[in-house]
Simulated assay, not measured.
Amino acid sequence: MTEPPRYAYLGPAGTFTEAALRTLVSPDEAEYVPCVDVLTALGAVRSGEVDYAVAAIENTVEGGVTATLDTLASGEPLIILGETVLPIAFEPAGA
Rank of each mutant, 00 (worst) to 15 (best):
V36K: 14
V85H: 08
F90R: 10
V25H: 01
I80D: 00
E31R: 11
C35D: 02
T66R: 15
V85S: 04
L81T: 09
T23H: 06
T68L: 07
T2A: 13
A53Y: 09
G48H: 14
G75S: 07
V50W: 11
E49N: 12
S26A: 10
V65W: 10
T60W: 10
A53P: 08
E62Q: 15
L69Y: 08
V25G: 01
L72D: 03
P77Q: 08
A19T: 00
E29R: 14
S74Y: 02
L21W: 02
T17H: 02
L24Y: 05
E18G: 01
A67C: 07
M1K: 09
R46S: 06
V54F: 13
L78P: 02
I88L: 09
E29T: 02
P12L: 07
V33W: 08
T60H: 14
T60S: 15
T84E: 03
G94K: 07
A56P: 14
L81V: 10
L81M: 06
F90I: 06
N59Y: 13
S47V: 15
N59D: 15
G43M: 11
R6I: 00
T84F: 04
G82T: 01
E29N: 08
P12D: 08
L24D: 00
G11A: 07
L42Q: 05
V38I: 15
Y9N: 01
P77L: 09
D37Q: 05
P34W: 12
I79V: 12
A55N: 11
F16I: 01
E62S: 14
P34E: 08
V61S: 14
L72F: 09
E62P: 03
L39W: 12
L69P: 00
V33A: 05
S74Q: 08
A67G: 04
Y32I: 02
A44Q: 12
A55T: 11
I57H: 13
D28Q: 12
L10N: 00
V25S: 01
S47R: 15
A67T: 12
L21P: 01
A13W: 00
A55E: 09
S26V: 03
E31N: 04
E91M: 09
G82F: 03
A67V: 11
V25T: 08
C35Y: 04
L81S: 02
T84C: 13
I79D: 05
A44R: 11
I79Q: 09
R6T: 03
E83P: 00
P4T: 07
A41R: 05
A73T: 06
T66L: 15
T68I: 08
P92A: 14
A55S: 14
G14D: 04
E31Y: 02
A19C: 02
T66M: 13
G14S: 03
A89E: 14
E76W: 00
A19L: 06
I88Y: 05
Y7V: 11
V38M: 07
A67D: 14
Y32K: 05
P92V: 09
V38H: 04
P77M: 09
V65M: 10
G82V: 01
F16R: 12
F90T: 11
T17Q: 01
G14H: 07
D37Y: 07
L81R: 10
F16E: 03
A8T: 02
G75T: 03
N59C: 15
V45I: 14
A95V: 06
S26C: 05
A73G: 13
E76Q: 13
A8F: 04
Y7S: 00
E18R: 04
L21M: 06
